[in-house]
């Protein structure tokens, strides 16, 4: 039991090392990939379009739940006017980046991993190598950058729609005063809160995109390999995102 655990721990650390080396290889190719922005725009569009609807829907529901729970909690202290602030801070600092990252990993991340894995399994990556085209530059880097850019935009959309959802429940159903909902939010949400959200969604975007392209690129060249790569993408992304979330939160509260 303990032995298995230690084995899998050392394997994870090894894989982490590999992933960081892969990141270095990607970053080295970023300058030359930027010279062909169209490839990157296509991938932003892909990653964004794939996830947009589920992120908007989830943002709405999460915001509505926040509206209900927040109202219930705050009215015990007679401070339901603070609902706007509570919802905005909860979404911008925490739920927006985290839930978006989890959904992004499940939708765009798995699509990336299986697309690249399938290119590996059908020799498309080797064919590029043979045509003297570096697949990391041509395939991996644009997809990585597309994900890195799309993720913060999606998180922002999630938070905005979430605030709207909280307002929907809090103001329209629970009859919190609309004026104080918005004005309290405006008065007490600080730049620091927004920064935390931006840093988190940027870091999660890098982590999720890196994990997806890494898993796809290094998948075994078989149907089974592609399946494993997509599963690992979701699981690894989820664990890493929650772990990084703790680190960044602690850093901002320090």
């Amino acid at each position: 039991m303990i032995r298995d655990f230690l084995d899998s721990l050392s394997e994870s650390i090894e894989r982490l090392g590999d992933t960081i080396r892969f990141l270095a290889r990607i970053l080295a190719q970023v300058p030359s990939a930027v010279l062909r922005p169209q490839l990157i725009f296509d991938q932003i569009y892909n990653a964004g379009a794939l996830s947009l609807v589920i992120i908007m829907l989830s943002g709405l529901f999460v915001g509505m739940v926040l509206g209900l729970q927040g109202y219930d909690l705050l009215q015990r202290f007679g401070s339901e006017d603070a609902l706007g602030t509570a919802a905005a801070i909860g979404l911008v600092r925490e739920l927006g980046p985290v839930v978006t990252a989890l959904l992004f990993a499940g939708r765009a991340g798995t699509a990336l991993a299986s697309e690249i894995g399938l290119m590996r399994a059908t020799d498309q990556l080797s064919a590029m190598e043979m045509m003297a085209v570096d697949p990391v530059r041509r395939v991996v880097v644009p997809r990585f950058l597309g994900g890195v850019i799309a993720m913060p935009l999606l998180a922002a959309i999630f938070s905005m729609i979430g605030i709207y959802g909280a307002q929907l429940v809090g103001v329209q159903i629970m009859h919190v005063d609309a004026g104080s909902f918005w004005s309290q939010m405006q008065a007490s949400v600080e730049l620091r809160d927004i920064n935390e959200g931006i840093v988190k969604s940027a870091v999660f975007g890098i982590a999720c995109s890196l994990i997806a392209v890494y898993q796809g690129y290094h998948s075994a060249p078989t149907a089974e390999g592609v399946g494993t790569a997509t599963t690992r993408t979701v699981v690894t992304s989820a664990v890493i995102v929650l772990f990084l979330d703790y680190l960044i939160t602690a850093f901002f509260l320090k």
């Binding site: 059908t122 020799d123 498309q124 043979m130």
Partner: peptide
């Protein structure tokens, strides 16, 4: 030039 077993066209 190399011809791969199944062509390996970019899909």
């Amino acid at each position: 030039g190399m011809l791969f077993q199944n062509g390996a066209l970019l899909t």
